[in-house]
Nucleic acid binder design. Sequence first.
DNA 1: CAGTGGTCTAGACCACTAT
DNA 2: TAGTGGTCTAGACCACTGC
Lengths: 247, 247
Amino acid sequence: MSAPQASPAPARSLHQRIRDDIEGRIHSGQWPPGHRIPSEHALMAQYGCARMTVSKVLSLLADAGMIERRRRAGSFVARPHPHIEQVALDIPDIPFEVAARGHRYQFELLARQLRKPRRGDAREAELAGQARVLALQCLHLADERPLALEDRLINPAAAPQAVDVDFSQTAPGSWLLQHVSWTRAEHRISAIGVDAARARLLQVPTGTACLVIERRTWRGEQPVTCVTQVFLGDSYDLVARFSPGGR
Amino acid sequence: MSAPQASPAPARSLHQRIRDDIEGRIHSGQWPPGHRIPSEHALMAQYGCARMTVSKVLSLLADAGMIERRRRAGSFVARPHPHIEQVALDIPDIPFEVAARGHRYQFELLARQLRKPRRGDAREAELAGQARVLALQCLHLADERPLALEDRLINPAAAPQAVDVDFSQTAPGSWLLQHVSWTRAEHRISAIGVDAARARLLQVPTGTACLVIERRTWRGEQPVTCVTQVFLGDSYDLVARFSPGGR
DNA sequence: CAGTGGTCTAGACCACTAT
DNA sequence: TAGTGGTCTAGACCACTGC
């Protein structure tokens, strides 16, 4: 009836130790991809614990993608999807990132328009249904030097207050991050040689290699914002850390 | 003593419905960032279920980063870290990706060396402790046209079989993905204008904008591989999808 | 149809910490 | 010290599915 711990304070909890054990067997190759993991009943007996404890472990491992669970069949070490891997990529807030690298951040609003969505523009296709869009172009500078050019569209229907914000003082990305929540985002990352117009604004020769991040966010089915950021490629990096299984 | 379901088969399980409810309150703004979520006891009473059920929900939400839990203090809606966001980025397998886009994939091994690690080379610093490294350079082609140039170092201590693989037939990235597991990876993504040597191999003018992915993987503390892939920027995109909270 | 995972209960003990 | 989350137990019922 009572529920005494196996040991008073195992430092690492029981389900953590079980998880470590199973992960160890998988990573060491002792349990290769496709290998059938003992059933919950078997593990329960093996570790001398309640079924719920091993069940929790296996559920977490399944969430993390390390194992697959099938009713009646059992749990199996996941075959790593051979063609796709996911990494957690940090999409940084530019002002913060610049400051973190010890540079002075500045921001310039180059253009602001509240206008109808343009037809035929791929970037604006998502927003075609809206009456108006708020279009902003701005420049991010680090130590007085241009770092990135940002073209942003904001859907006023999703962020009504945005229309009244003075974006000459606040970077729109930072403002949105703090004031508008979203439920889905998509990013495309590519490289371009900058066209003449952008080159002039970035004060580099036409054709200079730049990193392009295109980001779209939605709140439910409603588009919130769509932004294209063009970074000077040699002065900006994206960094992704990853441990497989998400944890 | 018995454990009847609240309703026979609620389609969506109870903890899922509770989770949806709480997520709804958070996303709708009804529970803004910093808001204190009712305690497990209160939620237990509110939903008429066992404490473990709401506990599971809150644990999952905490794992997903949507809430923060503090002993004695309670659970709180997480303040979105204003300066960093994480997205799940797909790091594709090049052969697969090319095929998926309907192109013919080809692969050329340009160079293969089993040699001592070079001192003074930043890329090889991690491998400096190793007796030998396997260095490969290869070219990925789509429809006979160069798509990406790959410089890869493999640590034979972590992947002994790699030394005997005929990489003129198998792309090393695909082979590694299928044969060697790893526990940690780091990626850097940037843009460069290609130098003359790479430009020649990629059959483009010097200075053409390219997307660079640098990827390092470890197995435990042991480095496994380090690869630099230079993509023609206009013919390659990385795509990241994201829903906040990780699910 | 028997075994598996999925879920839930009604408790319990514990560590931690804000008050 | 009282309230909170963290963990665990020893059951239970159910849906599903591969044998």
